[in-house]
Nucleic acid binder design. Structure first.
Lengths: 348, 348
DNA sequence: GCGTGAATTGTTAGCGCTCACAATGACCTC
DNA sequence: GAGGTCATTGTGAGCGCTAACAATTCACGC
């Protein structure tokens, strides 16, 4: 148990105590087959006794593997990015990798370059970039880096391997659901133009309407925040009686703002106007009324991203530029269901 | 620009190209003073030319500094932990450190030990543990680790250096605010018993009531989730007409559930019952009605935690076990303000 | 011209580990 | 019992870098 506080013990120290060579210690630690059980026991005992831990730097130096991955994220306190971050770390850890994160406030070209630089200095073997803005992905494509990079949420359109939830499909599910409930048309409050996910959701909405032979109404735009949703909701309230009975909002936070604006304008949800969101944040179920929304499987995104990145690192390079799409899922709640009012029991 | 793809260039390669010794290259990179400008320029040019980057493992091996910090978090998708995580990373990066995170689902002793082990394998120089459960902190205190550890959110009661928002103060602010608004007493929906922050908030509430000469009413308990808040809200609705006019809820998510339950029971907020929360999540401002709550300065928590951890790492050990408290701030909104109804304009 | 000290650069020795290969010994075969 | 095989262990080199020290150069004053 005791050990010098000055310098952590080295493999040679352990070897000396166990009466073997340092190489044998290395073999025990590396689960090498050809070690006698008795020897292994001696070594393990010595390791325990000294509280020995392998020096990761020395190991990384000779193996050329740091077993560290990097993640670049922005808006990391939002539910989506935070969930993705969590899933990525969990998946990486399961593969024995450490994850170093850089969280950016804004995803500019400079900041992105700095982030990759910082991670590179730290010796990461590869990076997952949560880069939902198109400009960020374009910047990324132009940057030089000595390791593979996988993007999440950037859509399949760029020359970088990517993993995405199928936003287009999610939007179709939500829009179709509203049409099926009897609405003649569906309005849309979209996210920022620069966001690929916003564009994909808008496209899915438009496609569905057009397939149903409906001319898409005016599109509104927000910045994902509840406040921007509130403002758009006020504008939407002005369209009442002119064909507005349903709105598909590009995320749950904005939907929250829309709900509030409608409520304040005396509009009932879902009786007067049905509202659907996107993301299924934990609060959505308790909005007034509970929000119909689209759930994304972030755990799957994390797992697939890490698997893909490790493939690239190991040189198991798939042919072409890999693009992985993950299916989202519609969650129907009271905000779009005209026959159940807000007064009903919540799901458990 | 060109370089061999097989092996990244080493310092020796750069030195050869620049016509100097590798040590001179090291000096240039290390901003050593005694290098002739002309030499420095030659070296920098060669570095640029070869796209050279220092090998962090080799550097760490000889300097015994990995310049990496670890963070252990749980419930990392919740607003509080996610914000703390973000602030920690930002503060660490400003000091030139990389941050490796381990996100746990549940903070059990085993998982915590595994997490520290994993970070230790990765060679971190110190760890910040976001450990709000008492059991976790106790476990932490009992674990052996070869680096300093600082906790966040564990309260000042344990033998580990810690940084905390002053939860007791936050609770006092909220409770006092409700009493000042004319309520005879204030009920409390607390968080899980094992959470130090929950205990501190409850204690602050109790202290304030007692100081005002009021017997604290029955205390309710939830698990931070909106659902648990909803259930508590249903129970609270049963106490109407028996002195219930104000509730202080230990976090905003539960407050959301309480609001819904009250609404469904035909209780108006704030006219019939005033509700205050804790956290100031971004959605709170758009709840029905907008929620009075307590805001915590997570950026400050992050900065102070990193500063403290670096002090410990550098051996600038402060006397005793350091405990840092950060002041929270009351944010008053419509949910506790009887003279402005939900119909009013929202803050911008 | 030459000594002197400061500025600049080079040389050498590890940091702690893994890899390649060498050495040892036990066991078997003919 | 010589020779071969296999399992087990040891030896030496070197990963790429920094620190300590040695060597060289330069400027300057006498």
């Amino acid at each position: 148990m005791a050990q010098s506080q000055l310098r952590p013990p080295t493999m040679a120290d352990v070897a000396r105590l166990a009466g073997v060579s340092h190489q044998t210690v290395s073999r025990v630690l590396g689960d090498h087959p050809n070690v006698r059980d008795e020897t292994r026991a001696k070594v393990l005992h010595a390791i325990e006794e000294m509280g020995y831990r392998r020096n990761s730097s020395a190991r990384a130096l000779v193996t050329r593997r740091t077993r560290t991955l990097g993640v670049v994220a922005s808006d990391a306190t939002l539910y989506g990015p935070a969930s993705t971050l969590f899933a990525l770390e969990e998946a990486a850890r399961a593969e024995g990798y450490l994850v170093s994160t850089v969280s950016l406030r804004k995803l500019t070209v400079e900041k992105l370059a700095e982030a990759l630089d910082h991670l590179s200095e730290g010796g990461v073997e590869g990076v997952v970039a949560i880069a939902p803005q198109r400009s960020a992905v374009e910047a990324l494509a132009g940057l030089r880096h000595p390791f593979p990079v996988v993007t999440v949420g950037s859509g399949p359109g760029v020359g970088i391997p990517s993993v995405n939830v199928d936003q287009h499909l999610g939007a179709r599910l939500a829009t179709r659901h509203l049409l099926a409930a009897g609405h003649r048309t569906v309005w849309h409050l979209a996210g920022p133009e620069d966001w690929q996910e916003a564009a994909d959701r808008a496209a899915g909405w438009r496609t569905t309407l057009e397939a149903a032979g409906v001319e898409p109404p005016l599109i509104l735009r927000g910045d994902w925040s509840p406040l921007s949703g509130y403002r758009a909701g006020q504008e939407l309230a002005g369209w009442l009686g002119r064909g507005l009975t349903a709105v598909f909002v590009a995320n749950d936070q904005m939907a929250l703002g829309v709900l509030r604006a409608l409520r304040e304008a005396g509009v009932r949800t879902p009786q007067d106007v049905a509202v659907a969101g996107f993301d299924d944040i934990p609060e959505s179920e308790f909005f007034a009324p509970p929000l119909t929304t689209v759930r994304q499987d972030f755990a799957a995104v994390g797992k697939r991203s890490i698997a893909l990145l490790l493939d690239l690192i190991e040189g198991r390079e798939p042919s072409g530029v890999p693009r992985i799409a993950i299916e989202p899922q519609l969650v129907v709640r009271a905000s779009t269901f005209p026959y159940t009012s807000d007064q009903g029991a919540p799901p458990v």
